[in-house]
Design a binder for these strands. Structure first.
Lengths: 207, 207
DNA sequence: CTTTTAGGTGTACGGCATACGCTTACCATT
DNA sequence: AATGGTAAGCGTATGCCGTACACCTAAAAG
């Protein structure tokens, strides 16, 4: 009977993401998103309870787009690496949402589906019971941490400049590490760290 | 010549931390911290440029308190585990600051000193060059991610309730994992994940 | 005792999330 | 074709926030 809706939650999430991509996370506000949609601020509240929920929608939009079908062929470690890489790529395409992904991770059905896929590969590899729980949480922790380090404290960012200026006597290893760090690019670093975790997971089947 | 200062940056950081511990991170505001110190809001600005810097002080206070002297005895993996555990303990004592630690990590001299200590242990273990850079970053990523998972999406929190309510047909592994998850406590989970990373690091010396 | 200089404060501004109540467009019914 | 009910959309207002600015004041140096 009533007037029909003119927006979808998806369109709202898209508008919010557009604001973040264009002007940064700090520019995200109910007002900005409403303006992006050429709507009044309060109109948004017909679709969303509050700002928190809007942020959740953005995270869902980004994380929900990840393809969770386990890649065929290759070893189980490589298959997990591909799944992990897809998350990194999707989040990496929208660096501004990185801080939001953490706070809203648990409401994302996308990440649940992804976890399910990873568990499937681990099960196939013969990782069972408690070890499988630990492996999944370990992978999640690494992915979450590595993505944040990459975007909020990257090796090539201002952090490295700080590093280079450290007193050599007090920080001999850091100074040396800084030199090496310049030679390791972000992809290599991410993959290298992931391999540490993957090597640590012991499957009972296959390589 | 002028009037002496009546506050120290340390006292300000302490007041801010008290506000966070008592009322949560959302309650942190220049006004709240000033009230905690029985000062006017604007007095804070004589000690701190802006809110960002105040947040940095809080992080420094928490992370700077970590003992970075490498523990004696035991294997290099165990020594790294102790260093990692100390960070977890200090941050865990103030869960509200977890989101701040990420944003302000790079300004913390405390974490630099900690990294130096970890690199020292790795060097002793014979981890060199590029591998050492990757190992440190991998450990950092894991620590950062695991601490956040623990406090923002813990296994025993509401996330697990969501997990338990998943449709079994669509998420068979997640359902099974949820059952196991209840049996793994936070310490075990953290240590288990850390061991994955540590096992993945290959030293050339000692166990 | 005066002068200097920075410490401390009160006020004000613009922006934020959001509660509340009004107006309005649409659909179903007559 | 006219009308009534319902939710969509909007304008306004409130109480937070960070912080710029101008002022007053305490105390150290002379």
């Amino acid at each position: 009977m009533p007037r029909p809706r003119s927006l979808t939650r998806d369109r709202i999430a898209g508008a919010a993401l557009a604001v973040i991509d264009r002007d940064g996370l700090a520019a995200l506000s109910m007002r900005a998103v409403a303006a992006e949609l050429a709507m009044s601020t309060m109109a948004l509240y017909r679709y969303v309870d509050d700002r928190q929920e809007l942020e959740g929608l953005v995270v869902e939009l980004v994380l929900g787009g990840v393809d969770v079908s386990p890649p065929p062929g290759a070893s189980w470690r490589e298959r997990v690496a591909v799944l992990v890489g897809r998350v990194r790529d999707h989040v990496g395409a929208h660096p501004g949402v990185v801080p939001l992904t953490m706070t809203h991770r648990h409401r994302s059905t996308g990440i649940l589906r992804w976890s399910e896929a990873v568990l499937g590969v681990l099960a196939e590899a013969g990782v069972d019971g408690r070890a499988r729980v630990v492996a999944l949480r370990g992978l999640l922790a690494y992915v979450v941490g590595a993505i944040q380090l990459e975007h909020l404290a990257s090796l090539s960012g201002p952090g490295t400049a700080t590093l280079a200026g450290l007193p050599r006597e007090e920080f001999p290893y850091m100074a040396e590490t800084a030199a090496h760090a310049r030679l390791v690019d972000a992809d290599e670093e991410f993959r290298g760290g992931l391999d540490l975790v993957l090597r640590g997971i012991r499957g009972s089947r296959g390589a």
